[in-house]
Amino acid sequence: MKILKKTLRRVLHTLLVLLALSFLIFSFIRIIPGDPVRSSMGPMVPEETIQKIRSELNFDKPLPVQYFYWIKGIVTAGDFGMSLFTHRSVGEDIARYLPRSLELCLYSALLILMMGVLLGTISAVFKNSWIDNVIRVFTYFGVVTPPYAFAIFFMLLFSYSLRLFPIGGVPVMPAEYVRTGALGLDALLAGDFALYGKVMHSMFLPVLSLSIGGIAYQTRIHRSAMVENINADYIAFARVAGVGNGKLIFKHLMKPSFIPTFTVYGLQVASLLGNAFIIEVLFRYQGFSQYSLSVIMNKDPYGIVGVTLIFGIIFAVVNVLIDMGVSVLDPRIGLRGEA
């Protein structure tokens, strides 16, 4: 009951933060110099047309009124406004691009978690052995090498030389399959496992490239936590009490070591969407990160506030989930601000 109350309070705080964020971004975008309508429509479009579009987008009204209409549209109709860049509703664009990027990030997040914990555990258990050294060298590579370098290397090796994967692009999804916008999920929902296989095939290298840095970092964090706990008194006591190695690692070591891993993991997952930009460009995976950069570069007002809000929501939701997860892992830790 207490945890539910704390969670609700946290969610309310988050909503207030998002509201403030939306107002700040909306204001900043509208007050910086430059007429986004004119620059998107071209120099020769008559002023009457420009004025008409400004009026349709409410740009001719005072800033607080513009914000009111915008937030009202989101709350009442899920309408984020019209994009000057794509000439469509921003909500429609978000619905089109976000699911496919979330799917990319989801697979990447799972890979980071599984591989990070696995390699971190192996590295800690075999501390200072050759296995540990190999894994540590890999983590150095992973942490210092930017994702785009891995992406280009994987493309050259697996796609260009070995021809095992396509050089970017994703399979075309038949219109009747499109339900969620997430490519793999839509293929599964349509029961087309062959297409799902093709989607996974085309997503393999983007996911791998996006994950390597996270796996390396996660491995290092998990190894450190495990090594620290291995030297703790309660582990020495457990050994004396005759607890076997397997039980010692998975029951007594894993859970406490997972707390720092989990906290860092949360932040990594939240930042995956931002990091996905260069991966999406290189692999021609037209997703939300690339869309976000396009609207920013084109100073598309409703596009920018829309994508910023989505990034804010994702960060906020992941943070709440992490706080909840950590408090479940270690009941001594309350939700942030409540401990």
Partner: peptide
């Protein structure tokens, strides 16, 4: 750490340039 990082970055760069 710095040395390891330098070796790692240089190796990846060399591989990429070779393959390019």
């Amino acid at each position: 750490n710095k040395l390891m990082a330098l070796i790692a970055a240089t190796t990846v760069l060399a591989m990429v340039l070779t393959a390019c």
